[in-house]
Design a protein around this nucleic acid. Structure first.
Lengths: 149, 149
DNA sequence: AGAATAGTTTTGAAGTTCAAAGTATTTGAA
DNA sequence: TTCAAATACTTTGAACTTCAAAACTATTCT
């Protein structure tokens, strides 16, 4: 087989795998949480996750992290606030901003969600050698930066 | 830095990148299509894509490929049929089955969608060496098989 | 103070999805 | 053979997510 053919095949496989993963990940993730007795929807989980991973967790910053509008985020935060998963307070420095915080009830849930992510990452890393990690990381980094261009 | 630390760091990065990609891919994909004058939503595009990639494209098989219920697929196919993107006909061998087909109007759209996927894949492969492909593929394959467990 | 700006919330509409109930067809066991 | 169960699909109603636009509040600028 020629190199060009091999490359074409490799691309096709990577593409197919990405599509497959994309199509299944949400459903499986949500099932995994249901099994663990978590009542929240996946989008609510992702909001909680984004809050913990946003440096200055204002509405605008969190919405950017998630790639949704601030209006959509407000709707979601409303119910999370009402259910007692997050706190909300004005920034004393700039009282236009609302800082969102995670409450203990949410930390529990995020821990269970993390288990899922860890299992997922395990399944990739299990029999990779250390020096091979770099390549995987650089591939994904390229993909991610392509999306942020 | 110890190997264990390096591994922990690698996992964290891979996880973060996957989450990032997941959060952005849909929005960007949909914007890319809007730029190209395509009127369909992403989920409609994914239905079309799944039809072309399912061996015997019955409702059940396509729904499985997509990871949604057959009922949901029916709703989507209803509008795609009405807009003239897909054909629908009973399987003469087993008249319970409905075989879905892609019409020319849909092929045009899928071509544009493919451009997006190709650009995406390009951005990963651009400066990978041939022998490195295998590793990337095997990593993704593991991830994908983990989801199909 | 008044106008402009920034951050957030509210609202209405559209789209996606599921679960449950209903229809049509096929299969298989009595 | 016949009819009950299984299979394939569609319909329906409800819940959820999201967006765009308008409204509101707080802050900054002139």
């Amino acid at each position: 087989m020629k190199d060009a053919d091999r490359l074409r095949e490799a691309r096709a496989i990577v593409n197919e795998l990405l599509v497959d993963i994309f199509n299944r990940i949400l459903a499986i993730e949500s099932e995994s949480l249901k099994d663990k007795g978590v009542k929240l929807s996946m989008s609510e989980i992702h909001v909680l996750e984004a809050i913990t991973k946003t440096d200055e967790p204002t509405m605008t910053n969190i919405a950017n992290k998630l790639g949704i509008t601030v209006g959509s985020l407000t709707v979601s935060v409303n119910t999370l606030f009402q259910k007692g998963f997050v706190s909300r307070e004005r920034d004393p420095e700039d009282r236009r901003k609302v800082i969102i915080g995670i409450l203990p009830k949410a930390e529990e849930v995020l821990e269970k969600h993390n288990d899922f992510h860890n299992e997922m990452i395990n399944s990739i890393f299990n029999d990779l050698k250390l020096e091979e990690d770099e390549l995987l990381i650089s591939s994904l980094r390229k993909l991610s930066s392509y999306f942020k261009q």
